[in-house]
C-alpha cells in the first residue's frame, strides 16, 4: 500500500473555489475552468477530477471508480465516501478508462430527476475553440469543445441521454487541472 498524499491544502477554501469552477462549468457548458488546491492527486487521477470528488462527495454519496486501489484509498480517507461496485448505484462516478454506458447509470425519476448520477471522466485533452458545437441553456449562441479520449459513440449516447430530459446523467470532463461540464440539457453537434 502506497503512502496517502494530502487532499486540499486548505479544505474549506479549496473546496469553495473548486465548487465555483464546477458551478461555472455547469452553467456555461463547454467552457473550460482551471482548478487548483491539491499538490499531488493520486495516480491516475488528474487534479480536477480529484478536486471535484473531494468537493462534492462525502458519506452521503456512493462513488464508483475504476481508478484503482491507490485512488480508492485516497478517496475513502479524504472524502469518506462509500465505494460501490455497481455503476448504477453510484451518485458520482469517476472513469479513467472505459466509461460505463450512460443508460446504465442512475437517471432519476420523472418526479425526482435530480436523483441522478454525475459522471466525471478523465480524458486526454480538452480544447475550447474547436470540435463539437454545443447549444442549450447556459450558452448564448454556441460553444465549441474538443475532447480527446471519449468513446466514438459518446455523441450518440449523449443524444439518448438528452432525449430523456428531465431524467438523465450530467457529465464533468476533466483533463489535468482543467474541467468542463455537460449538463443533460446540452445539445452536441459533431463538427
Amino acid at each position: 500500500m502506497t503512502e496517502l498524499t494530502p487532499g486540499f491544502a486548505d479544505p474549506v477554501l479549496g473546496a469553495q473555489s473548486c465548487f465555483r469552477a464546477i458551478l461555472e462549468a455547469m452553467s456555461r457548458p463547454g467552457r473550460l475552468q482551471r482548478v487548483a488546491g491539491i499538490e499531488q492527486p493520486p495516480a491516475p487521477l488528474g487534479l480536477a477530477a480529484a478536486a471535484a470528488l473531494l468537493t462534492l462527495a462525502d458519506a452521503d454519496t456512493p462513488v464508483w471508480t475504476d481508478a484503482g486501489a491507490a485512488a480508492e484509498a485516497w478517496l475513502r480517507f479524504h472524502a469518506g465516501c462509500p465505494l460501490v461496485a455497481e455503476p448504477r448505484e453510484a451518485s458520482f462516478l469517476l472513469a479513467t478508462g472505459r466509461i460505463p454506458s450512460l443508460a446504465t447509470l442512475a437517471q432519476g425519476s420523472e418526479e425526482e430527476p435530480h436523483r441522478s448520477a454525475t459522471l466525471i471522466v478523465e480524458v486526454k485533452t480538452l480544447a475550447e475553440t474547436v470540435g463539437w458545437k454545443l447549444t442549450g441553456p447556459g450558452i448564448e449562441t454556441e460553444h465549441r469543445l474538443q475532447v480527446a479520449g471519449l468513446p466514438a459513440d459518446f455523441p450518440r449516447q449523449w443524444a439518448a441521454n438528452r432525449a430523456g430530459f428531465p431524467r438523465g446523467v450530467d457529465v464533468v470532463l476533466t483533463a489535468g487541472p482543467w474541467l468542463a461540464a455537460l449538463p443533460r440539457t446540452t445539445r452536441i453537434e459533431e463538427a
Binding site: 473546496a15 465548487f19 458551478l23 455547469m26 430527476p113 435530480h114 430530459f165 450530467d170 449538463p183 440539457t185
Partner: peptide, 16 residues
C-alpha cells in the same frame, strides 16, 4: 452542509 447544498445547486442548474 455546504457540500449537500452544492450538490443540490449543480442538479438545479442541470435541470433549469
Amino acid at each position: 452542509t455546504k457540500r449537500m447544498i452544492r450538490r443540490a445547486l449543480l442538479k438545479a442548474v442541470a435541470i433549469p
